[in-house]
Computed example of a mutant assay.
Amino acid sequence: MDGPNAVAVSAEGFGLKGPRGWAFRGVDIDAEPGALVVVEGPSGSGRTCLLLALTGRMRSTEGSASVGPFRLPKQLSAVRRISTLAHVPGVTDLDPALTVEEHLRERALLQRRFDGSLRALLRPRAERAAASRARIDTALAAAGLDREALPKGTRTAVRDLERNEALRLSVALALIGRPRLLGVDDTDLKLSDAERTQVWDLLRSVAESGTTVVAVGSEAPKDAVVVSTAPRDEADERSPGNPGTDENENPGTDKKETADALAEAGRA
């Protein structure tokens, strides 16, 4: 569904090559505003790098892509302003010692400080607090995170959350910023079949509400726009400079390069 803020996502021959080889290449996408785009592919095939590139956190080196009116790789900063990330290891990690409430308050405070207008910042404290609570409540509802269902409500520490609950919290934190594009990594990792279905229902709902979603997953729902980072054939897989399935043979999936890329994304 085309919501008020959703953006179209397209790509043609999109690729990213690092010092150790291709992270991904030859990616084509044609997704309408409000779509649920699922990035599939074997582990080490560049799924997270593609997610980061589409949200403006990594610079592509081949082909082109568009996120709404903005072109990649030329308008990275513009794409970063309208997109946000959730559940990306090394980038959006939750602090296990903090409570759900502490995470939500911190994110709302940062959001108000960095994207609020001067007029909004000058409003009485009570009004600002009420606006923050409203934004948090809206994000929690959109992420399907029920405070009352948590062991200690929002005073529950992140370390005590189930994996599904932690994912929903990460999505809620991202939605506080009211993005037009949401990128979510490892959506169905270590989840049961029932939990996977719930997560896809959640992300579909977010998309239908007006935020285009790009998510990394192993089994996309039938109504999703599916994008694969897997090599197209054996020749591509083993040709010089292209990703292979064996991490030890593939320079594009070197663990140090991936860690460096994630660290850079966290600073973006």
Rank of each mutant, 00 (worst) to 15 (best):
G3R: 11
A6E: 03
A8N: 12
V9R: 13
A11T: 05
F14D: 01
K17Y: 01
K17G: 04
G18R: 11
R20I: 00
F24P: 03
G26P: 06
G26M: 05
I29F: 01
A31D: 02
G34R: 12
A35W: 01
A35S: 15
L36S: 12
V38D: 03
V38S: 10
V38H: 02
G56V: 03
R59Y: 03
S60W: 00
S60V: 09
S60K: 12
S60Q: 14
S60L: 10
T61W: 06
T61F: 03
G63A: 06
G63T: 04
G63N: 06
G63H: 03
A65S: 10
S66P: 02
G68M: 08
P69Y: 06
F70A: 14
R71Q: 12
P73R: 14
P73C: 14
K74C: 11
Q75W: 07
Q75C: 07
T84C: 11
T84P: 14
V88Q: 14
V88W: 08
T92L: 12
D93C: 05
L94K: 12
L98P: 12
L98C: 13
V100W: 03
H103K: 13
H103R: 12
H103F: 05
L104V: 07
E106V: 02
L109A: 14
R113A: 11
F114R: 15
D115L: 07
G116K: 07
S117D: 08
R119M: 05
A120I: 00
A120M: 05
P124R: 07
P124A: 08
A126R: 15
A129C: 01
A129S: 08
A130F: 00
S132Y: 00
S132N: 12
A134C: 09
A134R: 15
I136T: 15
A139P: 15
L140D: 03
A141H: 13
A141I: 00
A143I: 04
G144Q: 09
G144S: 08
D146L: 11
R147P: 15
P151Y: 01
K152N: 13
R155T: 02
R163S: 09
S170A: 15
A172F: 11
A172D: 01
L175H: 09
R178S: 10
G183A: 14
D185E: 08
S192I: 01
D193V: 09
D193A: 14
A194L: 06
W200F: 13
R204Q: 11
V214D: 07
A215T: 05
A215P: 09
E219D: 10
A220Y: 01
K222C: 01
A224N: 05
V225L: 04
V226E: 02
S228M: 04
D233Y: 03
D233H: 09
D233M: 06
E234T: 09
D236M: 09
P240S: 10
P240T: 07
G241K: 08
N242P: 04
N242V: 00
P243S: 09
N250P: 04
P251D: 02
G252F: 00
G252Q: 05
D254A: 07
K255S: 13
A259N: 05
A261G: 11
A265G: 01
G266V: 02
R267D: 01
A268M: 13
